[in-house]
Design a binder for these strands. Structure first.
Length: 551
RNA sequence: GUUUCGGUAGCUCAGCUGGAUAGAGCAACGCCCUUCUAAGGCGUCGGCCGGGGGUUCGAAUCCCUCCCGGAAUGCCA
């Protein structure tokens, strides 16, 4: 029997007891919570306190009556007792608790897969930065969050597609082409002024240089030059971006090109659809979408008076396309500066046939970067930014991924760059990875001492210490942590869990010698540690952090 | 002005579907390696949980209100 089932049975037994005592009323919710402090039991119930007013009795007294009547024989309860001011604390049978070790060891890294997603087809879109320059630290947060959430949702049983929307059409791309062209001409010895809204980052110069290396001065006086730089410049920068993301442990299943929306006439068709269904009107020469009918604060222009589209228009077509591809859930992860965009796109999505609530938008707050105590402003246009590449090279992937994964999505983060670069050893990621490496090292020692670590015990008679059972109880909590993390779209819940598991292990390790002359005891502890190691690895993988065997 | 996110230890942040003495890391101080990795453990120090009201047996958590900070408020993307 699994822990979840047992929990239900215990609730049933509570219900029976309450009925017997005459306290039960229809609609009364019986809840079991896991106390923070394990000395208060594996589960506890506040039911006596809830009943106090209805029954007009002191909660402590009611609790005592319940405890008296509670039949613990069939529900693996070893002890049930009352605590002030009226909590009922339940202690489970140790033999039952140790079952979790077998569950984990028999399933290995498959352990913990949930069926929360039950056939849902989920599309998660994240990063989606215009390919007009290098990724910076803010994008890194988006990449990290999107990737971690994707992994978590997948583990929770959703059918996940990870998608990147490539803005390879529109004004910014023209500016990019002009910027590269200007740099290219400079390299060819023709001083050229950068366009007004040009991009000044070093990656633009590098891109131009690459074209020069390959084609020489071929595009100096060439009427196709602009088209060439547009086409290849985007590809060039996109390749860099893909590489950076991949090195950051972030990959995508679908790279969706905005250009193809136009090529397939989807934007025009979407506008047509909106017109035909009476969702639009003309005003001052522009075409407006009645988003205010769907909770947006005002209507939005989708075709400007000069006949061109606003940026939302292709976005609507894009999201409509997602619907047509059969997804039952859509999640967009966007930066904090896009929060005004939520209402209009959800409104538009309903107009094109999306069920209300099908699109969820997770907003990531900004990362404030501090250096020498001062804020470093991030700007792609100016080219002054801490790039993802710099971070990967100087800090390393694991510390950054863990750092981002520790924070909830909607907290404003301060990142002290001097600290991140210098004191990497103090990053909590090492604490957690060290736990994994330590366990591995124990196994190496055990092997060399002749223990058969491939044939670990499945019944436990010698595990008894508090530290061991704290570890066991945390192992049992993993599924719950994963579930909460998935439901709340909160990767940092997994990270918090990892931290407490690592902490419980380190504490256990310091308290007792694993490998001793007592063969049975040693083998049982090894089984416990194997399960711990597995969970650490699974959980670290969920946030995109490696689990090294040696440090 | 409006919308939105935040305000918890010296710093960076958890805890927020109400529960038991408010947690972690870093910083400061003190112990613990003849034994499986000391990137570790144990302990001390440190909090009007932004202010004020309210709901409740019980509020960091829910409601109201005010204050402070970030972001957004384009026929830019």
């Amino acid at each position: 029997m699994k822990l979840q089932e047992l929990k239900l049975k215990i609730k049933d037994e509570f219900k029976n007891t309450l009925i017997e005592l005459g306290y039960f009323e229809e609609g009364l919710q019986i809840e079991l919570e896991s106390p923070k402090d394990k000395s208060n039991g594996d589960y506890s119930s506040n039911i006596a306190m809830k009943l106090a007013r209805i029954a007009r009795k002191a909660p402590f007294k009611i609790a005592e009556e319940i405890v008296e009547k509670f039949d613990k024989t069939e529900v693996f309860v070893s002890e049930i007792k009352v605590a002030n001011p009226g909590f009922i604390n339940i202690y489970l049978d140790k033999a039952f608790l140790t079952e979790i070790i077998n569950d984990i060891n028999s399933q290995g890294e498959e352990y913990g897969t949930l069926d929360l997603g039950k056939g849902e087809r989920l599309n998660i879109e994240y990063v989606s930065v215009n390919p007009t320059g290098s990724l910076h630290i803010g994008h890194a947060r988006g990449a990290s969050a999107g990737d971690s959430l994707s992994r978590i949702m997948k583990k929770a049983g959703y059918d996940v597609t990870r998608e990147y929307y490539v803005n390879d059409a529109g004004n910014q791309i023209n500016n990019l082409a002009l910027s590269i062209q200007a740099r290219y001409l400079e390299i060819c010895g023709i001083p050229t002024e950068m366009p007004k809204d040009g991009y000044h980052g070093p990656e633009i110069i590098e891109s131009a240089k690459r074209f020069f290396d390959e084609f020489g001065t071929k595009f100096v006086n060439n009427k196709n030059a602009f088209e060439f730089f547009k086409e290849n410049g985007v590809q060039n920068l996109l390749n860099e971006l893909i590489k950076d993301l991949k090195d950051f442990g972030v990959e995508f299943d679908v790279w969706f090109s905005e250009k193809t929306l136009y090529e397939n006439n989807l934007v025009a068709k979407t506008v047509e659809f909106l017109k035909e269904n009476n969702f639009t009107y003309e005003f001052e020469g522009a075409l407006w979408l009645k988003t205010s009918n769907y909770n947006d604060e005002k209507d939005r222009v989708i075709v400007k008076s000069d006949g061109t589209y606003t940026y939302v228009t292709p976005d609507i077509a894009y999201h409509k396309n997602k619907l047509e591809r059969g997804y039952t859930m859509l999640i967009d992860i966007l930066g904090g500066d896009h929060h005004g965009y939520i209402d209009r796109i959800t409104a538009a999505l309903e107009m094109v046939g999306g069920k209300s609530g099908i699109l969820e938008i997770e907003i990531l707050q900004m990362v404030k970067v501090l250096q020498n105590g001062e804020e470093v402003k991030m700007s792609k246009r100016s080219g002054k930014a801490i790039t993802l590449r710099d971070l990967i090279d100087e800090v390393g992937v694991d510390p950054i991924r863990y750092f981002f994964a520790m924070r909830s999505l909607n907290t404003h983060m301060d990142l002290d760059l001097d600290l991140a670069l210098k004191q990497t050893n103090e990053n909590p990621v090492y604490y957690v990875q060290y736990a994994h490496a330590r366990i591995n090292s124990i196994f190496n020692t055990a092997k060399s001492k002749g223990f058969n670590v491939d044939d670990l015990p499945t019944t436990f008679t010698t595990l008894s210490s508090d530290k061991a059972f704290e570890l066991i109880s945390l192992l049992a909590n993993f599924e719950d942590a994963l579930r909460q993390s998935a439901i709340q779209r909160a990767p940092h819940k997994v990270t918090n869990y990892i931290n407490s598991l690592a902490s419980a292990f380190h504490s256990f390790y310091n308290d007792e010698q694993v490998i001793t002359a007592d063969h049975t005891n040693t083998m049982e502890r090894l089984a416990l540690l194997k399960a711990t190691k597995t969970i650490l690895k699974i959980a670290l993988n969920l946030v995109g952090v490696s689990a090294p065997n040696k440090m």
